[in-house]
Design a protein around this nucleic acid. Structure first.
Lengths: 324, 324
DNA sequence: GTCCGTTCTGCACGTTTGTGCATAGAGCTT
DNA sequence: AAGCTCTATGCACAAACGTGCAGAACGGAC
């Protein structure tokens, strides 16, 4: 881009946001039209030059947040949404706010693990640009299935993250689930795969949604041809409530003995918990069971969710009592 | 304040800044009028709920900044100001932008050393609120002189810092200069003084302007009855170019053998250099000599100054050559 | 209860801002 | 140089916004 335009954008942003001048005054100084200033500012905003963040003082925040925070020990961001909004609109709002909340967390030299799914897809569409150096986006779990290699869907998400943060993108070109655990073991010894696994092991940030087995609109994983009849039966009979990055867990947060996980390509829950910043984005009340499992399992350090779901989370089993 | 108003402000801020809704839409959701939303947002901004910051990518910044940064190894923020502005207006702009630049740097548990003077006074008037816990504002140097105890002037500055950040304020109730070095030695052994000195030793942030001996409008120190005729003579004959917190230095950054410093109450340059974040605010070209000395002495890690002064700093002795 | 002072609210108005559109200009090809 | 495409600009209009003001609501004091 024209460097002088960039520097004009910077000047304009400083004068507008830091000195409270009007666009008119800035235009006169920059010897251009007011509309150009308006556009400069908007480009400054979505190129990440201007960072706007909301910090809600932990202690004065609304009750909802406090309760969830105390009970699950996560940093909560409740997204206010009108109750009349439909599922898709809610997801869009949550995704938008999630994208902007993530922005300030991302920094240079970060290794960022990203899952895929409808939630992450929505988030990826709303990312605001922020220039970082030597960051890497690494895919958390494979995306292929019986019908497609899943490449385009997941890779679109990855690519958007990569270009928003100027980061290198490392895809994980394996199916979501192997048919045979043995194949996974073999692949995991391949050097091409190990490169990805090593990156994952060094992740400083992980971003994921949750799948919930009983969601009204089941996640891709449960509906998209990833699992066959017998797999679904296994899930149904093993108390599994949901998944994160195609790794399943029960309501109590445990995941031991769930055979499907041996064929899954996502990081184990234990490995995920090693990551310093683990950001979970959830939209839609019907994911509540999966969400509760994920929180109980301690998978998230940061939780971004819509207000209605937050409320249900609190209502559940008198969680409110824990706040007294 | 009404807690529900606070939480409304938070909701409004999230919807406005993070979801790009219009105030109108937010008003409908909050069941109030648009004007109320406008006011909620403005209260959210100046209560520090909304943080807006400009991060200019170090490598793409305008030439001016790059040159100064490389030469003096400081983080530079050049404040764009119209050249036609007068001294006072420039100071106001610089102070405003300085205040907002400082905001994001301040955090809980910080011990913040603050000097006094016309620059700091202006900055203190533009601070935006930000709630922190267990922060302390500590006065860097005494403010008393022959005519007044200096209490109100300096303490106003301190108080504003304190209330902006919700911090405890520790004043330093001594004169700016002792008449006799021996008195200083004695006082420095007083426990009440030692408490302040210990706080200063633990500072994580220091904020100060610079005085310049030859400034058009001399700093308070040189004009306000702090020094008598013979003191000024000493300064004139010892190559002193300026001061930071009433500690003097020469153009080459040295301060050894300047006798006045033995009676001054500010932290020694060596002590100041221990502080992790040292923010220097300068407005007005006539401070250029003092500024150059301070930078040469390595007193600042962050420099906020107006464009004209920045340009002069670069023009000086072909500093531009250093950028090639 | 009434009174008074303070704070909050919505309205109305003027100001400030975003954006579709037509045009000018830059860069590239032939 | 002419012709082309693509981007940036300014205009003009509509949308969004800030704020003085008058009235409503609140919270003591008596």
């Amino acid at each position: 881009m024209d460097p002088s335009r960039h520097s004009d954008a910077l000047r304009a942003a400083q004068m507008y946001y830091l000195q409270d001048l009007t666009m008119d005054a800035i235009a006169r100084e920059l010897r251009t039209s007011r509309s150009t200033v308006s556009r400069l500012l908007s480009s400054a905003r979505d190129s990440g030059l201007v960072q706007i963040q909301i910090r809600n003082p932990l202690d004065t925040g609304p009750e909802l947040e406090g309760m969830i925070r105390r009970h699950y020990n996560v940093d909560v961001h409740v997204v206010p949404v009108l109750e009349t909004l439909n599922e898709a609109e809610t997801l869009d709002r949550v995704a938008m706010q999630a994208a902007r909340t993530i922005g300030p967390i991302v920094d240079s030299n970060a290794i960022i693990g990203v899952a895929w799914g409808s939630t992450l897809s929505a988030v990826s569409r709303h990312l605001t640009r922020k220039i970082t150096h030597d960051s890497v986006i690494v895919q958390l779990n494979g995306a292929g299935n019986m019908h497609t290699t899943g490449i385009t869907y997941a890779s679109d998400i990855m690519r958007r993250f990569g270009s928003a943060y100027g980061a290198r993108v490392e895809q994980f070109p394996v199916p979501a689930f192997f048919d045979h655990a043995g194949t996974k073991t073999a692949m995991w010894n391949e050097r091409s795969v190990q490169r990805i696994l090593e990156l994952q092991a060094k992740m400083s940030i992980a971003i994921f949604g949750v799948g919930s087995v009983d969601a009204d609109y089941p996640s891709h994983v449960y509906a998209g041809g990833y699992l066959d009849e017998s797999d679904l039966n296994i899930l149904a009979t093993s108390d599994v409530v949901g998944d994160v990055a195609t790794v399943f867990f029960r309501g109590d947060g445990s995941s031991d003995g769930i055979v499907l996980n041996e064929r899954s390509t996502g990081p184990s829950l234990a490995q995920l918990r090693q990551v310093r910043r683990r950001i979970c984005v959830v939209s839609g009340e019907s994911k509540i069971n999966g969400l509760r499992g994920a929180l109980t399992a301690g998978l998230a350090t940061d939780l971004i969710l819509d207000e209605a779901t937050a409320r249900r989370l609190v209502d559940f089993e008198g969680l409110a009592a824990a706040s007294g």
